[in-house]
Design a protein around this nucleic acid. Structure first.
Lengths: 161, 161
DNA sequence: CGGCAGGGTTCCTTCAGGGAACTCTGGGTG
DNA sequence: CACCCAGAGTTCCCTGAAGGAACCCTGCCG
């Protein structure tokens, strides 16, 4: 695809996409977090080409999202989420919440989450890490941060995120 | 790319990826939400090919994420987020939180969010829509839902999400 | 009426994804 | 010991999507 690589952009969205933005990567993470941890399992479940699966798994291991772990004396491994990878699953849960709301249609959500704390079926909602109140896009001001590419004193609104 | 289209999967992650999973789409949404609402602005900011930008914008309009709105009697439009699209920005905010934590490095986050409710610089955190407590991946059980592809009575854990 | 700017379209080239066949490793079976 | 097998890749060819540059179309403006 000769795809542009986003990693040079001063933008956390672009950087995150560099890690999991390639086709299939989020679905691979979904499978691993659902307990499909081996090459053959993931390949059969997704119907992805073996070549691409190899590439994606290596990429995710290189970026510290997955860990390759042998489970036999033969060259057999399974892939497990690291702490960094587990936190990415949150992103998938947000995608689920949005997809359930806007795309599920008549049939309803394909899966449900039951929250351990309250034992209720629910979904994730973004809250403020400081005060705990809801924090939607319209609830925030966006300001340039220390890692912004804009030299201090120049510019106002920045597209970087 | 002859990319497999995910929309047939009974999975809200796959369906969401069908809408914004293509390369550049999240960055286009970022730009629109940051106030870069016109073709030329987005094209200049991202350095994306005009052809691909046209395709992506049409796709996002078709899926009800963006609305094309004329701003002149000449054929000039700008793109604005719909309600459906605005809720997707939440996804970007979660990507920012993850990218800031794991990828920003020495320089620190490129942008900061100030929450209107508490006026503090903070970031989003997933909470339970029911009880309001934190809801991380390890805080939930995943159960098949009504839209699951698995017929009732069969199967246990489902990879669908 | 010629220029111009926004917003696309067209065309060509290159490289990534799909898919199938092949390989490599080391245990199990007769 | 020879053969088979399963998991996990690797190789190869084909197609189609991304990059990039050039071209086009519309309607205001001097």
């Amino acid at each position: 695809m000769q795809r542009t690589n986003y990693s040079e952009m001063a933008c956390s969205i672009a950087r995150t996409l560099d890690v999991i933005g390639e086709p299939w990567s989020p679905l691979i993470l979904r499978d691993v977090s659902a307990g499909f941890t081996r090459f053959e399992q993931i390949q059969a479940d997704l119907g992805i080409s073996r070549k691409v699966l190899t590439e994606r798994l290596n990429h995710l291991v290189d970026h510290g999202i997955l860990e390759r772990r042998p489970y036999d004396r033969r060259p057999r491994h399974e892939y497990v989420l690291t702490a960094k990878g587990t936190e990415l699953i949150t992103l998938l849960m947000v995608m689920v919440a949005w997809g359930d709301k806007w795309l599920a249609g008549e049939a309803g959500p394909p899966v449900l989450y039951r929250h351990h704390a309250c034992h209720e079926i629910s979904h994730v909602e973004p809250h403020c890490s400081h005060c705990g109140e809801p924090m939607r896009p319209q609830d925030v001001d966006v300001l340039p941060g220390p890692g912004s590419a804009v030299p201090p004193g120049l510019g106002t609104a920045v597209p970087a995120r």
